[in-house]
């Protein structure tokens, strides 16, 4: 290997570390800001009591319950649809088929729909046309539409990465396609599914505008999926932008959200790993 390539190699290494440091630094800058303002607000009672005085005092228990229900509906719909679509696109139809091209185009278009449009659409379609009103169900279904593009794209990339030998080997053994999909391809695609899930859950938990119009603003503890329930980002938004004096609790809620994300992301990779038997993380 010649000297210039050694030099290039060093430069590249250096550049990689610099970028990584810059991204990490910015992240910790934001995190520091959040923790500095929000950490002292967090306590057991903050997690277990309901909001009072428009959220300035009290905790976020009902918000956490509503958020998990919304997320549950969202993932319950998005995962089967998303993984199914990805399998269909990558395994059932020819790669260059017209149908596949159109589905991918429409997914990219879906990815760009602004969240407020999702919200207004969800309020009309799920809320009025299907009659779910302001409810956790409406919110979860709207979110499912939002996370589908990213989930499908990532999962499809996972299927693509499965080597051709797996498919051929499976077929040669006379396995049914369902069996090949379940036992050979899904595990191979598990990493893609995790990436899609992580990005999808992130998007879902971070969503505000789409949920204000669908799952709504009510902070009462929900008793069914047809109740309105305020999700965590809506709560943060309202406290930060709409309720004077809500800042302290907005920061505390944001810290809870970040802890929640770390928990769910770990859970997602762990679950995919055990359930699908794939290796999801290095």
């Amino acid at each position: 290997m010649n000297r210039s390539s050694v030099k290039a190699d060093r430069t590249a290494t250096f550049l990689c570390w610099i970028v990584a440091f810059a991204v990490t630094g910015t992240f910790f800058w934001i995190l520091w800001d959040l923790l500095g303002h929000g950490f002292k607000g967090i306590s057991w009672s903050f997690l277990t009591t309901q909001p009072r005085d428009a959220g300035r005092s009290g905790g976020i228990s009902s918000v956490l319950v509503s958020t998990s229900l919304i997320l549950g509906v969202c993932l319950g719909v998005a995962i089967p649809t998303g993984v199914g679509t990805a399998a269909f696109l990558s395994e059932w139809i020819p790669r260059k088929s017209r149908v596949g091209r159109w589905i991918r185009r429409s997914l990219d278009l879906l990815a760009a729909v602004p969240s407020i449009v999702f919200g207004l659409f969800g309020a009309v379609f799920f809320g009025e046309v299907l009659g779910f009103g302001f409810s956790i169900l409406s919110g979860g279904l709207t979110l499912a539409l939002m996370v589908l593009p990213i989930l499908i794209r990532a999962t499809e990339a996972g299927f693509r990465s499965a080597s051709e030998e797996l498919r051929l080997g499976g077929a040669a053994l006379g396995l049914r396609r369902a069996t090949i999909l379940r036992h050979l391809l899904l595990p191979a695609a598990s990493h893609g599914i995790v990436v899609g899930l992580v990005l999808g859950v992130g998007r879902a938990l971070a969503e505000t505008a789409a949920l204000i119009f669908t799952s709504g603003y009510v902070t009462r503890m929900p008793s069914s999926l047809l109740d309105s329930g305020r999700s965590i980002s809506v709560h943060i938004y309202d406290l930060a932008m709409n309720v004077p004096g809500g800042e302290a609790n907005a920061y505390a809620t944001a810290v809870v959200l970040i802890l929640l994300l770390i928990l769910i992301n770990s859970l997602a990779s762990w679950a995919t790993q055990t359930w699908l038997g794939g290796r999801s993380l290095p």
Binding site: V23, V198, V201, R203, A206, I236, A254, L257, L261
Partner: peptide
Amino acid sequence: RRLIEVLAGIPSVV
């Protein structure tokens, strides 16, 4: 990687 995953879920209002 974990850090970037968390970055993906911070609400836009934050």
